[in-house]
Design a protein around this nucleic acid. Structure first.
Lengths: 140, 140
DNA sequence: AATACAAATGCGAGAGATTCTCAAAAACAC
DNA sequence: GTGTTTTTGAGAATCTCTCGCATTTGTATT
């Protein structure tokens, strides 16, 4: 038993964001820790409610955007509809999206990252964040 | 006189999309040709109305998404709010966004493009489209 | 140039995602 | 515990974008 995340881990993360520890936030963070996909706000809400039926939509949005603002959660808009979330604590990676199935493959390329920095520097900038997404189709 | 785009250019582009030539579409395409920024739908509408007050919001959205669907216009969602548009006829490029001012610098890197293809191939995919955005801050 | 038919338009209603308002409830410092 | 500040839930509001439909317009054909 126990791929259940330790409550103290959730608490640390919430504290790190400078927020008060509430039951709702603990639950939402726990959902994010457990998620191995990239749920949107509605999916986070549904999953959170399975653990605590009282959690509201407003709180879900508020928590996700508060954590996102502090850099503890990453927000993606792969398609134009709902934003999708993941913990930033997970190692950095970019996304390859299978346009047929919607499946997402995560990848990293130190080489690309290096080139990105060079390009930004050449224009007099430093990179705060970046987004690299490859919309692909299976070969064959 | 005349950084005004020739009407026939607008017409060709609309025809290429398999659409009927209408006054509204000519105006909207003209706005896109003239734009050197990446206007959102509302800005396109405002600029178009300066030339033809009768253009509706619905037509603006419909035209932009029709052209986008045919690959003649590119749609970006740099931030999570409104989508921003640019003519696809312009040479391909990626974007560096100044997070302080909102200014957008366009760039290309053959090197990065090559690496992207390699990565996709390694996973058994071919790239249909990609998105690379660097969110940056001025150094100094 | 008149006709006919499909396609496009404007308007306002509607949908989806997200944010806001505000009174009540819960967290934290003392 | 008490007091202060933050957070919450519920629903209204907002923002972006799409849709339905009656009317108008483009275009191919007489």
């Amino acid at each position: 038993m126990s791929d259940l995340p330790d409550i103290t881990i959730c608490d640390d993360l919430i504290r790190e964001a400078g927020l008060r520890i509430t039951r709702q936030r603990q639950t939402i963070v726990r959902i994010l820790i457990e998620a191995d996909d990239h749920p949107d706000a509605d999916q986070v809400l549904t999953r959170a409610r399975a653990l605590d039926a009282s959690i509201s939509q407003a709180t879900t949005y508020r928590t996700l955007s508060a954590l996102s603002e502090k850099g503890l959660v990453r927000t993606h808009t792969f398609d134009s509809s709902a934003a999708r979330f993941e913990l930033a604590a997970r190692p950095h990676h970019d996304h390859l999206i299978d346009v047929e199935t919607g499946r997402i493959v995560e990848f990293v390329s130190a080489e690309i990252e290096r080139l990105q920095k060079e390009i930004a520097a050449a224009h007099g900038y430093v990179i705060i964040a970046h987004r690299l997404e490859l919309f692909c189709r299976k070969v064959g």
